[in-house]
Amino acid sequence: MKVLLLVFALVAAVSGQTEPWCRCAAFVTYEYTEMMVYEAPDIIIDSCQDDANQCKDACANELNTLSGNGDLWLLQESGVTIGQTICTALADHFLFWVVNHRVYGYFEVCGGPWEYSGVASQQLLCCDGGKHDHCIVKK
């Protein structure tokens, strides 16, 4: 009986890994690294080989809907801005000060490389001690 359960568990694990999926996330870009600040729920796609555009479009739609097309000052139902949510996520990783960074959306198909979804924040992100703040752009 134990062997039968083990076989079923292995079959379930292997079959679960072959289902096509898409990851979607928002990142803040630094000179030498990217910091994920939001990850959407996985998106089911039809195929790992042929559906990069399906993944890209679904990811762009998810991020644009969530953020009002990249508006960092959009108030969420909780009364907190999108930018504050991102500043809080960064502060949770001990990044309390962010000056003039854009937030970009990326997607990943079936464990492949992260690719740009075409979504970017309308404003630059600035966090002052973990608090979302207006950026001052020098010319």
Rank of each mutant, 00 (worst) to 15 (best):
E34Y: 14
G130P: 03
A12S: 11
Q17I: 09
V3G: 04
S47Y: 03
A52L: 12
I136V: 12
V109Q: 06
V103D: 03
W21N: 01
I136R: 13
Y116E: 07
A25I: 05
A58D: 10
G70R: 09
H93I: 13
D71R: 02
K131T: 14
P20A: 13
W21A: 03
V103P: 02
A40L: 06
W114N: 04
A26F: 02
G118K: 07
Q54L: 03
H101F: 00
D128C: 09
A89I: 02
C87F: 08
N100F: 00
P20S: 09
E62V: 08
L125D: 02
K131E: 12
F8A: 15
F27D: 01
L125A: 02
L95N: 14
D51S: 14
V119E: 13
Y32S: 05
A40V: 10
S117I: 03
C22Q: 10
H101E: 01
I44F: 00
A25N: 12
P113F: 10
K138N: 12
Y38D: 03
E39D: 01
S47H: 05
F94Y: 13
F8E: 11
G130M: 04
T33N: 13
Q123K: 09
N69Q: 10
M35E: 13
L75Q: 11
S67Y: 01
L66D: 08
A26L: 13
A12E: 07
Q17R: 10
K139V: 11
L5V: 10
A13G: 08
G70I: 11
A58Y: 05
L63Q: 10
M36A: 10
Y32N: 06
C24G: 06
N61D: 13
V28Y: 06
T65E: 05
R23W: 09
Y116I: 04
N64Q: 02
F27L: 01
G130S: 04
L95F: 15
A13E: 07
I136N: 14
V37N: 05
C59E: 04
A91E: 11
G112V: 03
F8P: 02
C22A: 06
L72Y: 10
W21Q: 02
Q49F: 05
A13F: 12
S78H: 07
K138S: 07
I136K: 13
W97F: 12
F94P: 00
Q54R: 06
Y30C: 00
V3C: 05
Y30G: 04
D57Q: 12
M1Y: 15
V14P: 07
Q76L: 11
K2L: 08
N61Q: 14
Y38E: 03
K131D: 08
A26S: 07
Q76W: 00
T33R: 07
D57F: 09
W73K: 01
D128S: 14
Y32T: 06
H134K: 15
G129L: 10
G70H: 08
T88I: 15
H101A: 00
N61E: 14
C48P: 04
L125C: 01
A9V: 04
A40Q: 08
P20T: 06
S67D: 00
L95M: 14
C48E: 02
L10F: 15
H101S: 03
L75S: 05
I45Y: 03
L74F: 12
Q76T: 09
D92W: 02
Q123R: 10
R23I: 03
N61G: 04
V37S: 07
